[in-house]
Amino acid sequence: MGTSVVFIHGLWIHSVLWRPWQELFDKRGYRTLAPDWPGDGRTVAATRADPGRLLDVGVDAITDSYAKVVKDLPDAPIVIGHSFGGLIAQKLRDRGLAAGAVCISPAPIKGVRAVPWSLLRSSFPALRSPANRHKVVSLTERQFAYSFGNAISPDESEKLYSDLAIPSPGRPLFEASTANLRRNSPTAVDTHRGDGGPLLLIAAGKDHTVPPSVVRGAHQLYVRGGAPAELRTYEDRGHSAPFDHGWLELAEDTLAWLDDHGLKPRR
């Protein structure tokens, strides 16, 4: 059995985004899984048709759901997450459940101070009303184009919106936005932990939703805490980087990074 890789999606995008990555990683000898968030439908259409199952789903519930999947595997897997999936990947690593983690444009962990304007604007569809903390929120095509599709063509953004966009719970955004005001936050991780396996943080230079300064802020927390973490920035990419036309570059670079850190598939 090959080394397991668990892919974790973020807000507003279905887990189907990982299918090209899974096909590539499977061919290289890994065993891949891309579980859904609790409440997601098995398909984009199913999630859109019944979004009520996502009501009030927060960071802890999502983390616990993935932890259950991970604990059923024969060995600690590599976890690869995008956006809030990148935050969840760090939390799984913090729990000692991951052999290594790759976090693409990860949502801010507690302690990150950077709050760029574009992050606030991208979060506004949920944060504009306190009631949305307990509701499910959808993006319009225009909002998606700003938050995800600003570094690609309008036609490609429209296609990605049509193929991948789903409603998502508002609660994770409220938890992240208030993290530094609370003693205990679901978005907290131990950045002093040095035994959680290799960690790669990936920033996208044109990302509106998780700007590079946010990812750099997380990296600085790990550096100050003495935990091993690497930072890479793709200057011309946006928040759609892992599932737009340039996904293969990130995937191949991730495979090379795993190889460099001894996280090769077992034969």
Rank of each mutant, 00 (worst) to 15 (best):
K135G: 07
R121K: 15
E156F: 03
T140N: 11
A126F: 04
S122Q: 02
H192F: 11
Y146E: 09
F144W: 02
T191I: 14
Q143R: 12
H134K: 14
Y161C: 03
P167H: 02
R133F: 05
T140Y: 10
G170C: 09
W117N: 11
P169T: 02
A165Q: 13
H192Y: 13
F148R: 03
S123N: 10
S153E: 05
S118A: 14
P167D: 04
L181K: 04
A145I: 01
S138W: 02
I166M: 03
A114I: 06
V189Q: 03
N184I: 14
A151K: 01
H192P: 05
L139I: 07
S185I: 11
P154T: 03
S162Q: 15
S147D: 06
A151W: 06
S185R: 03
V137W: 03
D163H: 05
K135H: 13
R171Y: 01
F148Q: 07
N184E: 14
S122K: 01
P154Q: 03
A151Q: 07
W117H: 09
D163A: 13
A165P: 09
R171N: 00
V136H: 01
G170V: 03
T140H: 10
T178M: 14
W117E: 13
Y146D: 05
R133Y: 08
D163G: 00
P154V: 00
D190Y: 01
F148I: 09
A114E: 10
E141V: 10
H134E: 12
S153A: 15
T187I: 03
S177E: 08
L127G: 00
S157C: 12
S118L: 07
F174V: 00
R193G: 11
A126Y: 02
N184V: 14
D190V: 05
L119C: 12
E156R: 08
A179W: 02
S122G: 11
K135Q: 13
K135T: 07
L164C: 06
R183C: 05
L160C: 06
P116L: 08
Y146C: 04
G194C: 08
S153R: 10
R128W: 15
W117F: 15
A131D: 12
F124P: 14
S118M: 08
P167I: 08
L173V: 01
A176P: 01
T178C: 08
S168D: 04
I166H: 00
E156Y: 04
V137N: 02
A114R: 00
S157D: 03
L173A: 00
G149N: 09
P167T: 12
L127W: 15
R193N: 11
Y161M: 08
L120D: 08
A145L: 07
K135I: 05
R113H: 13
F124I: 06
R183I: 09
R128G: 04
L120W: 04
H192G: 15
A145E: 07
L127M: 10
G170L: 03
V189S: 01
L139C: 07
P130D: 08
G149T: 12
A165L: 14
R121P: 00
N150K: 11
L119F: 10
P186W: 04
S118F: 06
P167G: 04
